[in-house]
Nucleic acid binder design. Structure first.
Lengths: 217, 217, 217, 217
DNA sequence: AATGAATGAGCCTTCATTCAT
DNA sequence: GATGAATGAAGGCTCATTCAT
């Protein structure tokens, strides 16, 4: 009888929300396939059938979670600056947001991880995720890099630099277990994250400026 | 009744060998959990019970496969330049080898894929893998970067640049699905790979030199 | 491709055989959908997973059961006479076999019922059942009726008489519950079945002869 | 909390009525078990809980639907000829009405289908259905056949001929799927139906007359 | 009179594992 | 050295039903 899930009066559909959060954590940790509906429901304090009721099936729930994750991540670490900001400032904002999203190991910060998981082992939901969440950010970064490289840069060069910037950031996520073995240390502090972001920005800006000069001269 | 399970030391046995190869491919493609014993056995032309007979259980087989993969991979890809080569040349060699290994899908045998997988979702086998296979390469790259940065660079700075170089390369593997959606194109040609490697080298060298200067001055 | 699933040609295997029998009874009684694998396995003294092992899935098992039912039914009540028999004798044999298959309420005689169920509420298996089991019998009856009607009968007339003969037989199955209410009586005895078969034969022969005459004259 | 469940006596209520109609169609098409409450409610434009609210549960709703169907069907199809008609004419009328009812798919509303279903897989409601709807027709046909066979015919013979006539008609419904596979053709035209009815009448009359003669002599 | 939310039982299926030969 | 047969645990999903409003 202590199982009673809803004791307080909540007008919004609390269960759905709890499912979304629980599923986010579990999916982020285990991946789509390994995660079980039972586990998610238990963690959300909901009945197994709740998933079917609220989302239809596991896959549709996953898609919703992914969308939700994107919105949450965007809200938590906004990466967009006004158009009057310099390209350097906008690059800094972008990298910083990306690094923070990746390295924040707070239990509530499953958002970034879920998205990177989807990137590594895509499901049918990838297409949507890319078009709605990733492509806009990608285009934004591309614009910034294009401005930094100057008008002489061709499309391919811009793209390669975009990958270089992004790759430096994602590495800290993808190689986290390797890094942990090669250079054991605790969790990333706020300072660590800032230092990493600063390095990536400096490294990238230096490279871009050096690359750009020979072309300009 | 108890012990007739083979260990990797023992005499090669046709079925066991076929299982090892088949398991390698399947594990690399699907991951430990998603891979099924039935699938592996079918592909190896063996009976379902063979896995249990030869390895004990699925997990033990995975461990053997990983060890086997490591031994195989160790034999390939020496890619080391003599110490008389310049740091720039050695960086070029390193990056090129890594990029080629990653992008050449016909050449990235299951050994490579499996090891990347283990990096993302490690089992107990990771520790060994890192120490025996990855650390040597890491130290080599660190030496190169340290030389490039000059004696003034502190350990952390060197490390960060090492990550930056590696991150740029690995990105093309980890983000392959995203890239495929963002910029659809066919397989990488020899030229593509060379261009990518050249870009990473140029980008990194430019960055390192620009970073180094302010420190030197 | 190397399915370990048995096909109907392979060696009998005790559990498989028990499953076939149990499934036959249960499917005949409850229909494909309502029948549960658990029930069938319990009745067969087998594990739930046995269905998957021996047949693949519920539907494939059903198809096998249907095929098995047909063979059994044919063996139990053979309806075929040698070609030297008169058409009248062959009609008698056909009707008698059909009536017996339908009305035999022995617990072991689920064969006929299962097939009639499939006729009423067809699954994907119907097509095969018709082509392999029903059409041959149909053609046989059609030949007999054609001979009885004489060479003057057109195709449609033959067909209609075929339906008339068959309809009279099947009625005792399809309307069994109605009959039981309209004229309550116990199970059909051997004598009852014989009387019914005789009536259908006499009724049909009379009709066919009377129909034929006006055409001949 | 207990009693506000409606019974069929009570005031008509829009939702309830729509549920009744929707349930009729779905039950007729899919059968009791395969039909889902969700499906019915969707088709009726009602909430899922409406079934429980209006009828108590699925089974009780089915009973109500059956009763409703019977009342509807009773109103239709009087098809009785005056007593001054000859037995042949009355047989013709009976067969024709039955065949038309069965084969005209646009006219065999769900009422008919549902009742045929109930005949095949009866619930407790069958008894009533037979007594109130079927027995009168049965008695009418029995009288006709008795008259045709003449006073010498014993009860059992009359009965068997009644079944023979009815069986020929119902066959076109029960075996419709088989027929569709054995002799693929489109829907039955007006002409087809008439031809079938005529055949059944001629076949049956011929049989009855031939059977009767030997007895009379 | 009616409904959105939630539930629990049960179904088919899959899988790694074990047993007897 | 190897295999066919069999098993139990678990997973995703569906459904009729009930609760609170």
């Amino acid at each position: 009888m202590s199982e009673s899930i809803r004791t307080s009066e909540q007008t919004t559909c609390a269960t759905r929300q709890r499912l979304l959060e629980a599923a986010g954590e579990v999916f982020a940790e285990q991946g789509f396939r390994a995660a079980t509906i039972r586990d998610i429901c238990r963690q959300a304090g909901a009945n197994i059938a709740a998933v079917n009721y609220h989302f239809g099936d596991k896959m549709k729930m996953y898609a919703e979670v992914l969308k939700y994750a994107y919105e949450k991540a965007r809200a938590k670490y906004p990466s967009e600056l006004g158009p009057q900001a310099t390209p350097e400032q906008r690059l800094q904002a972008f990298v910083q947001a990306l690094v923070y999203r990746i390295l924040d190991e707070t239990r509530l910060a499953w958002h970034g991880k879920l998205m990177f998981r989807e990137m590594m082992e895509p499901t049918e939901a990838l297409q949507t995720l890319v078009e709605e969440a990733i492509r806009p950010e990608f285009e934004r970064l591309r614009t910034v890099v294009a401005e930094l490289l100057g008008p002489g840069a061709d499309i391919e060069s811009v793209l390669q630099s975009v990958w270089s910037v992004t790759g430096q950031c994602l590495f800290y996520y993808h190689a986290r277990h390797i890094i942990a073995v090669l250079r054991p240390k605790g969790a990333y502090s706020q300072q660590d994250m800032q230092r990493i972001a600063d390095h990536v920005v400096k490294f990238s800006l230096s490279a871009i400026r050096c690359i750009e000069k020979p072309k300009a001269s």
